[in-house]
């Protein structure tokens, strides 16, 4: 019943996961939240280390995704009133952040559902294939392939319409 635990193995793997996880979180939340969620993600990974697959990256992204969702849910609960005000005040059309490096790309993203946008992010930024993305988001690889294809097509269409291309 000794759970001693391949600690050395975990530490080595965790060290390798830290930077990909930091980038994953930096792309999806603010720095303070990212820091907290990274710590929580490593903690959960440690607790669930026996479930960690030989190729742990997608698994770790899935853990981080859940931790981030939990953190955001908690924050939403705390800031419910503010969120309500923000929602009421939010303009109907996507308004790019002032420092958005590519507003047109951001607008194209805004045309996607949250799930599809995440599939595209995982494909482009985390450089995952459909099977790995499926592991992260909890869908079948086939469904991911189809949705990802449609999402990219939609984004490209939007970018084409805007004539922004990629010059």
């Amino acid at each position: 019943m000794d759970v001693e635990p391949r600690r050395t193995g975990f530490e080595a793997v965790a060290q390798e996961l830290i930077e990909p996880l930091r980038r994953y979180l930096a792309r999806r939340t603010d720095s303070a939240t990212a820091e907290d969620v990274l710590s929580e993600t490593l903690l959960v990974a440690w607790r669930r280390r026996t479930e960690m697959p030989a190729e742990p990256l997608a698994w770790a992204y899935a853990v981080a995704r859940n931790c981030l969702a939990n953190a955001e849910r908690a924050r939403r609960r705390q800031d419910r009133l503010l969120v309500r005000i923000w929602q009421v005040a939010r303009p109907p059309e996507y308004a790019p952040a002032r420092d958005d490096p590519d507003p047109e790309l951001a607008r194209a993203f805004a045309r996607l559902s949250a799930v599809d946008a995440e599939l595209v992010r995982l494909w482009a930024w985390e450089e995952l294939g459909p099977a790995e993305i499926a592991q992260v988001v909890g869908m079948s690889a086939n469904a991911v392939s189809i949705r990802l294809h449609r999402a990219r097509k939609k984004m490209k269409s939007v970018l084409d319409e805007e004539g922004s291309g990629h010059e």
């Binding site: 930091r22 980038r23 994953y24 930096a26 792309r27 958005d100 490096p101 590519d102 790309l105 951001a106 595209v120 992010r121 494909w123 482009a124 930024w125 990219r152 984004m155 490209k156 970018l159 084409d160 291309g165 990629h166």
Partner: peptide, 16 residues
């Protein structure tokens, strides 16, 4: 816009 173009463009806008 190809898939490659889209990915490149996204990488250039990568917040990380």
């Amino acid at each position: 816009v190809s898939d490659g173009d889209l990915r490149d463009r996204m990488r250039r806008a990568d917040p990380a």
